[in-house]
Amino acid sequence: MRGRLLGVIASFGLLVGVVVVYFIFILEEAPPGVAASVHGTTAQLTLQTDASYGHAPYPDWVTYEARDPSGHWQHSTILKIPAGTRYVHVTVYEYDTATGLRNPFFAYVRGTVGGVIQLNGRPMNYVDAASPAHTFTAPDLGLNVPLPGIDSSAKNQCAAAPCRTSEAHNTISFTFKTPKPGNYRFQCIVPCALGFLYGFGGPMQTIGYMDGMIEVA
């Protein structure tokens, strides 16, 4: 009787251990954070969106990348902002072609300083709903920035991340006020996950690809 009880307890402990190890494994899969570079009271984030990551484990997944203060591109969507800054200035190099929005409402720019973005130097407060390849959308910040895609007939399209500015791209820049300390999710609204049902799976559901976190601390 006692041996059976010990067996049950040991089995239960083993099961709990497996579950804990599994979740630790998942948590450790989160990409490392990338710190913004700081200039005075403004944090500078530099990102790129790429049609294909180009590396294991998911070489054909669409992805964001972030540039660290030393100028190296990191495959991460954990963006660290110092709480002491007043503004966050974001530059996105957009290398992917357009998919278009399922909900045209997100063609409208929201939450940026002045309610505008600069698209290749031109100020805009909304874009053609069929033009975005991706969006930079942080719902809890009321922030939505459509990222228009490049011409699908462009000849020097980027094949794998990190892409270079010598390849076809759009440059989108915008500024938003640094929010109070906390973690704020961001995501892409465009159904851009090639090969998944209606474009919603894979990278659209994965931190490090088209989902991430803005950490203000």
């Binding site: 998919t99 278009g100 929005l101 909900n103 409402f105 053609d128 069929a130 851009c192 474009g199």
Partner: peptide, 18 residues
């Protein structure tokens, strides 16, 4: 102006459709 006319349902397809 860019929104589709009001309808009780929508299922607009994006250009590339994933």
């Amino acid at each position: 102006k860019q929104l589709p006319p009001y309808s009780t349902t929508y299922y607009p397809q994006p250009i590339r459709n994933g």
